[in-house]
Structure formats: structure tokens, C-alpha cells
Amino acid sequence: MKALLQRVSEANVVVDGVIVGQIEQGVLAYIGIGHDDDLTTAKKMIDKILSYRIFENTIDFDKQGKLDWNVQQADGGLLLVSQFTLMANTDKGRRPDFGQAMPPHQAGKLFDELVEYTKSVYPKVATGKFGANMQVTAVNDGPLNFILQV
């Protein structure tokens, strides 16, 4: 499983002209699900995302400016968006190979389980719509972007 994290001031996902997920300051996380991933992998990824320190400490004067806080400490939102293209093999040729991505019917179920788990451990969660053509708008804060893999 791979995730592309973006620290954002705001982000939203639109499907068919309707906002289906929206956050203010927080993390936009694109999630790529591979063949071997399961709920254990998904939980590890979410735990890593929620604890990953990409926000400045705004209280401790000695630590201001350092990336000491995670999204929970910063009281930010988490917007989860499925993105099979993160699993692309781009080593050869000029066209991505998506053979490493889990098939959509299995990945959709696992993504739903990932979202359910996330909401059980953190209340400020929004999502896109799995398998839909989504328009994602984000104001990248920094910009800070990180690729995580578990």
C-alpha cells in the first residue's frame, strides 16, 4: 500500500458537480492499494498517516518551525482519496503498467474498510468516492508532500 500525503490549508473532492468530501487545514491522502494488501496493511498505513509529523508545533516556542505535530495534534482534517495510479510500474516504456494494483472490486471493499477503521480512531475524516471520476481541489500548504509505503 502506498500513500501520497499533502499538507493542505483546504481540500475537497467533487463528483458529478457535488462536493462529496471536504476538509479545512489538514492532510489530503491519496491511497494506492496493491495485490497483497489487506486490512492489517490498511490499519498500519492509517496509523502511520495519523502519527506522521508534518505540522509545526504552534505552542512550544523552542520548537516552533519544526515539524513536531501530526494531523491529530494539529486538530486537522484527513481527506482520503483512492488512487490506483500510485501502484503503477513506471520503470519501462512510456505507458504505466497497473498490474500491481488490486482489482477494483477487491480494492473498493478494502478502501471502505480502511475508511471505517480511520473513522473509528479519528473523527475528522472525509473521503472521495471510490471508482468515481473525481475532481480534487487542494491548496497545498508548504508545499509539503510525502510518499509513504507499508
Rank of each mutant, 00 (worst) to 15 (best):
M1C: 07
A3G: 08
A3I: 00
A3Q: 05
L4V: 11
Q6T: 08
R7Q: 04
E10C: 15
A11L: 11
V13G: 02
V14Y: 06
V15I: 08
D16T: 07
V18M: 12
I19Q: 01
V20W: 11
Q22M: 11
I23D: 15
I23S: 10
Q25W: 12
Q25F: 13
Q25N: 07
L28F: 04
Y30K: 14
Y30G: 15
Y30T: 15
I31Y: 01
H35L: 09
D36E: 13
D38S: 04
D38T: 02
L39N: 14
T40K: 13
A42T: 02
A42Q: 02
M45G: 01
M45N: 02
D47Q: 15
D47I: 05
D47R: 14
K48L: 05
R53W: 06
R53C: 15
I54M: 05
F55Y: 07
N57Y: 07
N57F: 04
D60W: 02
Q64T: 14
G65H: 02
G65V: 07
L67Y: 04
L67D: 07
L67E: 03
D68H: 05
N70E: 09
N70L: 13
Q72M: 11
Q72K: 10
Q72D: 05
Q73G: 11
D75E: 15
G76A: 03
G77P: 07
G77C: 01
L80T: 00
L80A: 00
L80I: 05
V81W: 05
S82T: 00
F84L: 09
F84E: 08
F84G: 03
L86Q: 04
M87S: 12
A88L: 03
A88Q: 15
T90P: 05
D91L: 15
K92I: 11
G93F: 06
R95D: 12
D97Y: 13
F98T: 12
G99P: 14
P104Q: 12
H105W: 03
Q106H: 02
K109T: 09
L110F: 01
D112P: 09
E113C: 03
Y117N: 07
Y117W: 05
Y117M: 10
K119I: 06
V121A: 14
V125N: 02
T127W: 09
F130M: 00
F130Y: 08
A132L: 03
A132G: 03
N133R: 09
N133W: 07
M134A: 01
M134H: 01
T137I: 13
A138W: 00
V139Q: 12
N140G: 07
N140H: 04
G142A: 10
L144E: 06
I147W: 04
Q149I: 11
V150D: 08
V150M: 13
